[in-house]
Amino acid sequence: MRVLLFALLALISLHFSPVMGQESAPSTPAQSVKPGINQKFLDPELDVNEWIKRFEVESREVFRGRQQIVKQLKLSPGNRIADVGAGTGLFLEPFSMAVGNKGWVYSLDIVPKFVERYEKMADILNLTNVTPVLCGQNDIRLAPGSIDVAFICDVYHHFEYPAASLASIRKALVPGGQLILIDFERIPGTSREWTLGHVRAGKEVFRKEVEEAGFEFVEEVKLPAFQENYFLRFMRK
């Protein structure tokens, strides 16, 4: 099994593996910025099919606009991309196709059952350039300089320890690599009540946090499919 194989490789030769062993992650910081936001995802009885029905529907903007999103990433054959918080694996196949046989896709999540799904998807679709990774809540567990692109889609507001997570992402990215942040607009008086209660901060706050973590803001990309979401591009300094 692919997940077990990479776990063994990490233990045998951590220095050379693109996937860091769990023992390399720093201890969890004492203070979460949004305690309990990931509790339902950490339920050992989590039903993956329930989340597929929630995430992979036309009413969800990132699902409806997935082709627009992939196009705007401007991936090239040979690129290495980390889908940080890949959820049900919506972008696993299109990313695999975009980077080609010489590229690589790391599908990351803190949910073991989601990670198991990535492995099954890669096997069924015969995608040989995909590595499922069970990451930590404050560390994506990838080796330094192992990726060219970090993709964070509708997930950043679930980061309980954003400073630590961003530090690990920056470490994994090559200098000049891009970070894509897609999240919900949070505008009091305009956004839905669900968004106001669920998403801890608006675009300006999230942008500031990413910039303070060592990234340069490049642009905001406007997508036709987006009304509630935004797409920000950053570059690793």
Rank of each mutant, 00 (worst) to 15 (best):
N49Q: 14
I37N: 04
A25R: 13
S59Q: 15
S76R: 12
E56F: 04
G36V: 05
F55T: 01
G78N: 02
K40V: 06
S76Q: 12
L73C: 08
L73H: 04
T28F: 00
S59I: 00
E61S: 01
E56Q: 14
V48K: 09
Q39V: 03
E50V: 04
K40P: 00
S59D: 10
R64F: 09
K53S: 12
T28G: 02
R64V: 00
M20F: 06
G78E: 03
I52R: 12
G78T: 03
N38Q: 11
N38P: 06
P77N: 02
V62P: 00
I52C: 11
G21R: 12
P77E: 08
K71H: 14
V62S: 03
I69Y: 09
S24Y: 10
G21H: 12
A30R: 15
F63Y: 15
L73P: 04
L46T: 09
W51D: 09
D83S: 10
E58D: 12
F55E: 08
P35C: 07
A82Q: 07
Q67S: 15
I37M: 08
P35N: 01
K40W: 07
G78Q: 02
A30E: 15
L42D: 05
G21T: 11
E23S: 15
L46A: 01
K40D: 12
G36L: 08
E50P: 02
S76V: 06
A25H: 03
S59K: 11
K71F: 09
P26F: 08
E45L: 15
E58Y: 09
Q22G: 13
N49I: 04
D83R: 02
S32E: 06
L42E: 10
N79M: 14
N49L: 13
T28S: 10
V62M: 04
E61Y: 03
R80K: 15
E23T: 13
